[in-house]
Nucleic acid binder design. Sequence first.
DNA 1: CGAATTTGACCTCA
DNA 2: TGAGGTCAAATTCG
Length: 246
Amino acid sequence: MEDTAATLATELDGLLAMARELEVRLEGDQGAPGTARELCAALAASVDRAMRLAGSSPRGGGDGEGNATGRASVSGRKAAAGKVRRQVRVASVTDVGPLNDGLSWRKYGQKDILGAPYPRAYFRCTHRHSQGCQATKQVQRPHADPLLFDVVYHGAHICAQAAVRPEQQSPPAVAPEGIQWPVTPPSFPSPPAGTVGEYYPSVCQLDGGYGYAAGGGLGADMGFGSQQDEWFLNLSDVFQPEVQNL
DNA sequence: CGAATTTGACCTCA
DNA sequence: TGAGGTCAAATTCG
């Protein structure tokens, strides 16, 4: 990646962060005119596009379809059938209990992805063996933004849990267990007991299916399984944003 | 004790 | 050959 692009991305990153924060505040303010919120969303989307352009690289510059779909489908076992990609962006972290959807995901692997700052985590339905549920998902943070995640679902839930929640069939959900948000940097194995937070699915307008979001808010980094998991699990729950059927 | 997570190794594909 | 995806044994946690 070029330095210029990196610098530009950093700048845009800051812009996006501001846009997002503004939007969050507007959301909190019931009286906020819809136009203002739309503007914020548009601004965020625009910055996002710019960032993508700035950070675009030939081979999975760190996010986007290159990674999410590149090999996943080609790899062979599960075809592209039922593949759904979502991008999740959260505005803040404070307390996540209520976000659990009831569907269970079990982590079965994690991989460092070339060009990506963070590893990709692989999950599959907990009932895969007991009920033959083939649903799987991959979660990865495209950039340094702890509030942005790229999630790709493969297959559909056919387990009992999924049947109970028709609304979430396609967009699976999250692990039932209590979720804690690692607001602590990877270098700190100790769990942030008091720093747990709640997600506010706020801006989710990234177009294109991927993008960068401002970072720096949280120091959470991937590389530490449990913490990452929690992140991923929670995120998967938050997405309502854009969905792409691939 | 059972279930979930972690982590390294193995397999497949471009 | 390199990279991504999955498996499975070991470890940890509830």
